[in-house]
């Protein structure tokens, strides 16, 4: 690791100060997620370089930055989805409740149960009904949930995702019959059913209209009381609206790096780094 002294002060030291302004939620959600010196490669190409970030439990963190800055790659290292790309490689540590998820003897399927993910494109399972989609995680992860509990769980997840009122009369319809925004909320409900501690969202609103985006943002605010949320977004207003902390990623042609992290209000009003200011003020990107 040839970490330059230029990168270090922007990552760890800022995290320490960033934690101060808003304390994590009061519910006992564990100690959150911590990335330590994360590097990610595709073949020989280094896509993410030395990113260290703390995600305190019960907070919403937005990852912003121009296309190709490595934020999507970084978020996929947080629940080990990165390794599905055949040429992928990784270095560093990701600690969930102080345990390295890349450690030896770790059951990766258990990790993904605790760290759920919502993708850019709504992807409900086409062969399943709305109800089955919500409960698909129970079957897929082979969890033991009784039939009666499953019904309650389904309603609870759909309510938390803000979709219950729209679909309660047609739970047996195909997931694909919903609109794009509803499908995305269905995918959020599906992720909630396995009760994750952390929810990763990779540009969840980029394919949606403003109305659906608003509904999803409301959902995010409600969910942030009970879990840690990390959201990648291209929409800076969205980052400002939903997140407690914002991390700015940038690539100057080389690997993506973390430039600055801090409380969202600070990043958008008085960022420390000139590049962050240029980006959030719309001078580029």
């Amino acid at each position: 690791m040839n970490t330059s002294e230029k990168v270090a002060p922007n990552s760890l030291s800022n995290v320490a100060s960033a934690r101060a302004p808003k304390k994590p939620g009061t519910s006992p959600l564990g100690s959150g997620l911590e990335a330590r010196g994360v590097h990610a490669w595709f073949g020989n190409h280094l896509a993410v370089k030395d990113v260290s970030l703390d995600f305190s439990s019960g907070t919403v963190t937005a990852l912003i930055g121009p296309s190709g800055c490595g934020k999507s790659t970084f978020i996929r290292t947080l629940n080990r989805m990165h390794e599905f790309i055949p040429s992928a490689a990784f270095a560093g540590e990701v600690l969930l409740d102080n345990q390295d998820i890349y450690g030896t003897g770790i059951d990766v399927t258990k990790i993904r149960l605790q760290i759920g993910m919502v993708f850019q494109k709504p992807n409900p399972f086409p062969s399943m009904t709305i109800g089955e989609n919500v409960l698909s995680g129970i079957k897929l992860a082979q969890l033991n949930v009784s039939k009666s509990e499953q019904q309650d769980l389904m309603q609870d997840c759909l309510e938390r995702a803000g979709l219950w009122n729209e679909v309660k009369d047609r739970l047996d319809a195909q997931g694909g019959s919903l609109s794009g925004g509803q499908q995305q909320r269905l995918c959020i409900a599906r992720s909630l059913a396995v009760k994750p501690k952390v929810l990763l969202m990779d540009e969840p609103c980029s394919a949606l209209d403003p109305g659906s985006t608003l509904r999803i943002e409301e959902t995010i605010s409600q969910l942030s009381n009970s879990m840690t949320i990390i959201i990648v977004t291209h929409n800076m207003q969205q980052a400002a609206r939903v997140s407690d902390y914002t991390a700015f990623f940038l690539s100057d042609g080389g690997p993506g790096e973390l430039i600055e992290v801090g409380p969202t209000s600070q990043i958008f009003t008085k960022p420390r780094d000139q590049r962050t200011e240029n980006y959030v003020s719309g001078r580029f990107g």
């Binding site: 629940n79 989805m81 599905f84 399927t109 258990k110 990790i111 993904r112 149960l113 759920g116 993910m117 993708f119 992807n123 399972f125 698909s136 995680g137 897929l140 992860a141 995918c187 599906r190 992720s191 396995v194």
Partner: peptide, 9 residues
């Protein structure tokens, strides 16, 4: 990916 992200093998 959606299946795997739900903790499935």
């Amino acid at each position: 990916e959606a299946g795997l992200a739900l903790g499935a093998t």
